Structure formats: C-alpha cells, structure tokens
Simulated scan of single mutants.
Amino acid sequence: MKIHLKGVEKKYGNIQAVKPIDLTIEDQFVTILGQSGCGKTTLLKMLAGLTEPTAGEIHFDDTPIFSLSKKVNVKPNKREIAMVFQDFGLWPHMTVFDNVAFGLRGKVAKAERTAIVHDALKKVKLEQKAKMKPGELSGGQQQRVALARAIAVNPKLILFDEALSALDAILREQMREEILTIVQSIGSKAIFVTHDQTEAMAMSDNMIVMNSGEVVQTGSPEEIYHSPTNTFVANFIGKTNWLEEQDKMIRPEHVHPYPQANTRARSGIVKKCMYEGDRYLIFVETNGHLWKFYDHQPHIQGEKIKLYIEENTIHSLQKQEA
C-alpha cells in the first residue's frame, strides 16, 4: 500500500502543529523521527483518522481517505489499519485472549476468531498467557499483547506511537527485533513514531525526520546519516564534528588518532574520555571546537593529540542543498 499526502496540515487555532506536507510513503517499515512537540504524533493520528487535518488530502493507494475539499473522511475502523500505543491501551479487566479478540468482534465468527487469536498469540510467543490479565504480565509481555491485537485484524498498515518508550533498554532492543520480524512475516506496512535516533536507524527502511511541524528530510537511514540536508538533521542524527566552515561536518568514526591514508592532521587537547563498552568516545578541543572520535584505548584529560581526518568523508551541507 502506498500512502500519499498532499498539502496535509494541522492547526489548533493560531498554532501550526503540522505545516503543509507533500509526501509519498511506500517502504515496508518507515519511522517518523523528531523531538517532542515536532508534530510526529499528530501526523500519525491524521493517518489513523483520530485527528482531522485542517487541509489537504490523504490517499491509501488510489483511495481517498481524507479530503477536505471533497468532503471525504473515512472512519478509523474502515481504514484497514491497526495502532499500537505508548501505554499499550489494554483493557485491564479482560484476559489476554479477550484483549486480542476485541477488534475482531462483529467481523468474524466465534470459531474463526478463536483460531485467529491463538495464531496472533503464537506469533508473539504468548500462547501460554491467554487466560491471564494484563496486570499479571511484565511490560514486555503487555507490549506483545498490544502487538498481537494489532496483527489479529490483518491490517494493511500498523501504526506505532512511541510504542517502546515505556520499556527498559534491554527489552526495547529485543522488541525492536521482534516487531520487525513480525511485520515482515505478515506482509503489512508499518509506520513507527519515535524520538530515539538509534531505534529509528536500526528499524527503518525509510526515515521521515520532522522539526517544528515540518518534514525536513526523508531517506534511508544511511542517506540521512551520511548526507544530512541541514544542521538540525546533522546534529540530531548521530554525533557530528563541525569544521571551521560551519556548513561542513564529519562523523567521529572518520576521525583517527593515528595517521591514515588520505588524511590531514589537526592538533588538539583531550577534554574527556567516556567508556562505551566496546570502545571509548574521546572529546578533543581543537581550533575552538569540541570534536569527538572513537578509539579502543583511553586517552588522558589534558593530553596533547593529533587528529587525522578522512578528507573524502567531509560532508558539505551547502553542496547537499544545491
């Protein structure tokens, strides 16, 4: 399913929550990434039909889902989508089975419903928890119930609104892998809203980066990381070193403490050294700027050091915009 947005925007009085957007979404797993308040959840809710746009049109393939001018606004339950929320949205008085079956009521016969629910629970590895209540489950298990409920209705599109933010770091990483595997196995498309850059980079086929209500860049994780279009994207996605020419930047992995082929040197003083498990992140003051690079050995604060820059990896924002 292709999703087309044409001039879609949202205002709350004089506040422009989402500025006019023209966008086509067609990859299987897409993330909308941005800081809190940038409009990403509002955009997701407009796709879901939970928030009505102030202007514009939304099409799923060639079918209009919303059009102010044509007076079209398809109800959320008719859009063939499912949504997984940050707080899971489970009914506490219902069993796991009944929570997953909820969206199937009135759509399929009871016997078929039972088979669908058991299949969904099997996909999320919760077959043995069907008779339990959500309050008896861990946070990760509750997240799996929410995912099972979403896939049970066989949606064309699953929307995730900060769906992993309530989980601890280890569970988040585990659930990323499980969500990707399940989405790929059922053939649905997914749009995943997050403010976590690592999460977005790891999961996405395509990323939509938002800032202050507008889409500032779209592309694969590799494209956005290596070729940001402006300073916001460069600073928001990954770590960045800025050259004296403020429109030129280089990533820390292309800066070395030892001579390399096709590099140029610059001097600096070590300001801080942070251990990251498999390597150290070193902060160096050079030419009035605080630079970062990685090394497998620690460096002492105050140490004089030379940094060697891979010149062919310097990225020019001015060139990108041109």
Rank of each mutant, 00 (worst) to 15 (best):
A265D: 13
G213C: 12
R251P: 02
V233Y: 04
M249I: 15
N241L: 10
K239C: 06
T240I: 11
P252T: 07
I182P: 00
T218R: 07
Q174Y: 04
A202V: 11
F283G: 00
A265P: 14
T263E: 04
D196I: 11
M201P: 02
F236P: 05
I282L: 10
M210E: 11
K239A: 14
D278L: 00
Q217Y: 05
E245W: 00
E177N: 03
S220R: 04
S185M: 08
F192G: 01
K248N: 09
S185C: 06
T240H: 08
S220V: 11
I191F: 04
S220H: 03
E177I: 12
V216K: 01
D205F: 04
K272E: 13
S227W: 05
K239W: 09
N206I: 03
Y225A: 06
A200V: 10
T218A: 07
I186P: 00
H254F: 14
E253K: 04
L281R: 10
T218E: 08
V215M: 08
N230E: 14
Q260R: 13
V270L: 08
H254C: 02
G213W: 09
M249C: 11
Q217N: 11
A265M: 13
D247Q: 11
T194C: 07
M274D: 07
V193K: 02
Y225L: 09
N206V: 06
R176C: 03
E253D: 08
T198I: 13
V284Q: 03
P221N: 10
G268P: 01
I224M: 05
P221V: 12
R176S: 02
L243G: 09
A202C: 03
S212H: 13
E214H: 13
N235T: 13
T181H: 11
E177F: 01
N262D: 12
I208W: 04
Y275P: 00
V183F: 01
Q197T: 13
P259G: 09
Y225C: 06
Y258P: 00
W242I: 12
R251Q: 07
Y280F: 15
P259K: 12
I208Q: 07
A190E: 03
T181W: 01
R176M: 05
P221Y: 06
G277S: 02
I224P: 00
D196K: 05
K271Y: 08
M201N: 03
E199H: 08
R279K: 12
L243D: 06
M210N: 09
V183R: 00
K272I: 07
S267A: 13
Y258G: 01
N241Y: 05
K189R: 15
T194Q: 02
T198E: 07
E178M: 06
L281H: 03
F283M: 11
A202D: 02
I179V: 15
T194S: 08
A190Q: 04
V216W: 02
V209W: 04
V215G: 02
M210Q: 12
S267G: 09
A234K: 09
I250K: 00
F283K: 04
I250E: 02
P221K: 03
P259N: 08
D247L: 06
Y258L: 08
M249N: 04
Q197W: 07
G238K: 05
Y225I: 09
T231A: 15
T263M: 05
T181C: 02
K189S: 15
S267F: 06
M210G: 09
V215P: 00
A200C: 12
D196N: 15
Q197C: 09
P259D: 11
G268F: 05
I250D: 02
E173A: 02
I186V: 15
R264N: 10
C273T: 14
Q174S: 07
